Amino acid sequence: MNRTPVSSSNLKSVGYDQSSNTLEIEFHGGRVYQYYNVPKRIYQGLMAASSHGRYHHRRIKDSYRYSRIR
């Protein structure tokens, strides 16, 4: 999945696959997680947020099933 770099002290890049509603986040340090069944509006909100890390923590982290892929 292609990811877009973001300006964040916690997140390095973010990608989204609309066909499967999968959100992929790479963190500084190399960890990559995929979050499943994430609506496009949540991805758009993450990308538009003034703080990507805070948005992730409040709206994504404990709200969607995920797995670490790297």
Rank of each mutant, 00 (worst) to 15 (best):
L23T: 03
H28I: 14
K12C: 02
E26D: 06
S20C: 09
D17R: 08
A48C: 01
L46Y: 06
Y33C: 13
S7Q: 12
D62C: 14
G15P: 01
R70G: 15
G53M: 09
R59G: 00
S13D: 07
H56Y: 13
H28C: 09
V32M: 04
R41E: 04
L11D: 03
L23F: 07
R70P: 12
G30K: 08
E26S: 07
Y35H: 06
Y64V: 03
S50T: 14
R65L: 09
G15F: 12
R59D: 11
L23D: 01
M47F: 12
N37D: 11
N37F: 08
G15E: 06
Y35V: 02
S51T: 13
R59T: 06
K61A: 07
E26N: 06
N37E: 13
G15M: 11
S63E: 10
M47W: 05
Y33L: 15
Y43R: 00
D17Q: 13
H57W: 10
L46N: 01
R70L: 15
Q44S: 10
L46I: 14
H28F: 11
N10A: 10
R65Y: 15
E26Y: 05
L11E: 08
M1D: 00
A49T: 04
D17H: 11
R58C: 08
Y16N: 00
R41C: 00
N21H: 06
S13I: 03
S50N: 07
Y36D: 09
M47L: 13
N2E: 15
A48Q: 05
R54P: 04
Y16L: 00
K12D: 01
S8T: 07
F27T: 11
